[in-house]
Design a binder for these strands. Structure first.
Length: 488
RNA sequence: GGCGACGUAGCCAAGUGGCUAAGGCAGAGGUCUGCAAAACCUUUAUUCAGCGGUUCGACUCCGCUCGUCGCCUCCA
C-alpha cells in the first residue's frame, strides 16, 4: 500500500512516488522573521514534523528544507519601528523561533537556508527570467510578466482575467499588468541593499523560495508545503518563477494545511486574535498542544480554545496513565492460560497495521489517535482482569502492545517522556501553583490516618475537606491513602 | 462579485457507496470506599444541515437551498 497524500494542484489524493526511489525531497515555506511565532506557525511546524517522522518511519529517506525569509517589507518596517537593523531583528526572531521549535520538540530540518545568504542564486534566477522574456525591468525594479506564463493560476484554480476584475488597483503604475509581481525591488535609502544588474536593491517576496529550493533540491522535487494561505499568491508565483526559469515541473506534490482559528475566525496578526507559542506553552505541556493539533485532520480548520486545550491535557494524561500502569506491571507468575480473548488479541496485534493504514491515507492522525485510544481501553480492561494470577503470555502481550503504542505515538511526537516522570512533573508543577508541598500533604494524611483508626470520621472528614479546599483530593485504597490534584 | 472548503451526539472529531456511523471531552450507571473523590470499566446518534436526484444500496456521488469559514491584500 502506497502512502497517499492530497495534492492541492490536482485536488485529489495521489500516491507519493519519489522521483528518486526511496528518497523524498521536501521544501516547506518557513517564517518571515520579524515577530514571535503564533500557534498557527506551531501547527505548520507540527504538521510537517509529523509528516517527516512518518515518512522516515516508513523507511523513506527525507531531505527536509525549511527556509527563513529574512529580508522583506515587514522586516524593514518593523526594524525601523524598533530602531534596529533588519539583520538584528531577523536574527533575533530566528533565535526565538528555534527556541519555540525546541520547546515543541520539532525535529530539525536538514537545511534552513536564509534568503539573504542566497542573493546570488536569486539574481541568477531573475536574470534567467529576463532572458526568457518572462520578466522586465522598470526603473530599479524587476517584475514578473504574469500573462506570459501559461500555467499561471493552475495551483490556486484562478484565471488571470477573473482576478483582474477583483484586483485592487495597484499604486505602482509601472507594472504592465496589475497582477505582475516584484522579483527585485530597488532599495530606498537606509534599506538593506545588494548590488545587482538592475542597481542596488533587494529580492521581492516569493523569489527566495524558488532560488533556494532549486539550489538544494533541484529543478523538480517531490513535495512543497505550507499553510493554505500561501497557495495564492506565494506558491502560485513560485511556480511561475521556477517553471518559467527552468522549463521543468517545479514541485510534484503540493501540501497545504488548514488554519488555526479562534472562535471560528482565522488567527492572524491583522485581526489581533493570535496567541504566541510561548504564551500557550507557559500554560500547557507541549505534548497537549500536539495532541490537539493531531486530533483534527491537517487540512481542516483547527479551533483553539482553553476548553479544547484542557481536553487535550486530560486526554494526554489518560495515555500516560495507561503507560504508567503498564510499566508497573509485575512479571508473569505462572504459565496459566491467557485471559485475553482471541478477538482482543487480534485487535491488539493488528494495531500497527491499522495505524499505518490510517496514516497512509493522507496522514489521518485523527483516526490514528482513535486507534490509540481504542488500544488504551483494551489495555486498561485487560490489566484490571489480570489480578494476581497473571500469565507470562498476557503480561508479554500487554508490554509489547504498550511499546507499539509508544512507538506509534512517537510519530506524532507524543508519549515522548517517561510516563512516571511526566505524571510526577505535572503534579509537581501544579502543586507549585497551589503553594502546597507534598510533605505538608503527607503530614495531614498521617494526622487523618490516626483519626480514621480511631473511627473519628468527623475529624477525618475535616482534614479531607481542608485539603480539598486547597484542591487536593484524597483516595483511600487498600494500600493506604493517596492524593491527587483536583481538576478545575 | 470571482474561486474554494466545511456543516456528523451537549462539545470536539474520524468515516476513499454496502458490515454494529471510530475515538476524545462532558453526562449517566458501576468497581473501589466508613462516606467521598481520582483512576478504571460500562453506557450515550434508527441517524449524518434541509430538499431533490443517480444507484439494488448514499454520511459518502450529482444538483439546489440555508448556514459557517477561507482565499482573491501581508499571512502558517
Amino acid at each position: 500500500m502506497p502512502i497517499s497524500l492530497y495534492n492541492t494542484i490536482t485536488r485529489t489524493k495521489e500516491p507519493l512516488t519519489p522521483i528518486e526511489p526511496g528518497h523524498v525531497k521536501l521544501y516547506v515555506c518557513g517564517i518571515t522573521a520579524y515577530d514571535y511565532c503564533h500557534i498557527g506557525h506551531a501547527r505548520s511546524a507540527l504538521v510537517f514534523d509529523m509528516m517527516v517522522r512518518y515518512l522516515r518511519y516508513r523507511g523513506l529517506k527525507v531531505t527536509f528544507v525549511r527556509n527563513f525569509t529574512d529580508i522583506d517589507d515587514k522586516i524593514i518596517k518593523r526594524a525601523a519601528e524598533q530602531e534596529t537593523t533588519c539583520t538584528e531583528l531577523s536574527e533575533r526572531f530566528i533565535r526565538k523561533f528555534h527556541e519555540d521549535m525546541a520547546a515543541l520538540n520539532i525535529i530539525q530540518p536538514d537545511l534552513e537556508p536564509k534568503a539573504t545568504e542566497h542573493v546570488d542564486e536569486i539574481i541568477r534566477m531573475i536574470s534567467l527570467l529576463i532572458e526568457r522574456g518572462l520578466a522586465y525591468q522598470e526603473g530599479s525594479d524587476v517584475y514578473y510578466r504574469v500573462n506570459l506564463f501559461e500555467g499561471y493560476g493552475k495551483l490556486s484554480g484562478r484565471q488571470l482575467d477573473e482576478m483582474q476584475a477583483g484586483a485592487r488597483i495597484t499604486i505602482n503604475e509601472a507594472k504592465e499588468n496589475p497582477m505582475d509581481f516584484a522579483l527585485w525591488k530597488g532599495s530606498k535609502p537606509g534599506e538593506p541593499t545588494w548590488e545587482s544588474p538592475w542597481g542596488p536593491g533587494r529580492p521581492g517576496w516569493h523569489i527566495e523560495c524558488s532560488a533556494m529550493s532549486r539550489r538544494y533540491l533541484g529543478d523538480t522535487f517531490d513535495i512543497h508545503g505550507g499553510g493554505k494561505d500561501l497557495i495564492f499568491p506565494h506558491h502560485e508565483n513560485e511556480i511561475a518563477q521556477s517553471e518559467g526559469a527552468t522549463g521543468c515541473c517545479f514541485a510534484r506534490h503540493w501540501i497545504h494545511h488548514g488554519f488555526v482559528t479562534i472562535k471560528d475566525e482565522k488567527m492572524s496578526k491583522s485581526l489581533g486574535n493570535f496567541l504566541t507559542i510561548r504564551e500557550v506553552l507557559a500554560l500547557y505541556p507541549a505534548e497537549a498542544l500536539r495532541l490537539l493539533v493531531f486530533s483534527t485532520h491537517y487540512r481542516n480548520p483547527l479551533d483553539y480554545s482553553d476548553a479544547s486545550m484542557k481536553d487535550a491535557v486530560t486526554g494526554l494524561e489518560r495515555l500516560y496513565n495507561c503507560m504508567d500502569s503498564l510499566s508497573k506491571l509485575p512479571n508473569g507468575t505462572d504459565i496459566s492460560e491467557s485471559l485475553i480473548d482471541q478477538a482482543t488479541q487480534d485487535r491488539l496485534l493488528s494495531l500497527e497495521d491499522r495505524f499505518l493504514e490510517a496514516m497512509d491515507n493522507d496522514l489521518n492522525t485523527a483516526q490514528g489517535l482513535g486507534l490509540i485510544y481504542d488500544t488504551v481501553k483494551d489495555l486498561n480492561r485487560i490489566r484490571q482482569t489480570l489480578g494476581e494470577k497473571s500469565s507470562d503470555i498476557d503480561i508479554t502481550i500487554l508490554k509489547e502492545c504498550g511499546q507499539t503504542l509508544t512507538r506509534l505515538s512517537g510519530i506524532m511526537g507524543l508519549l515522548n517522556e517517561n510516563p512516571t516522570t511526566y505524571l510526577h512533573d505535572q503534579k509537581a508543577e501544579k502543586l507549585e501553583d497551589l503553594e502546597i508541598t507534598p510533605e505538608e500533604i503527607q503530614q495531614l494524611i498521617e494526622d487523618r490516618k490516626i483519626a480514621r483508626s480511631e473511627k473519628n470520621w468527623g475529624q477525618a472528614d475535616e482534614i479531607r475537606d481542608l485539603l480539598l479546599a486547597r484542591s487536593i483530593e484524597l483516595k483511600d485504597g487498600p494500600e493506604g491513602t493517596s492524593w491527587h490534584i483536583k481538576k478545575d
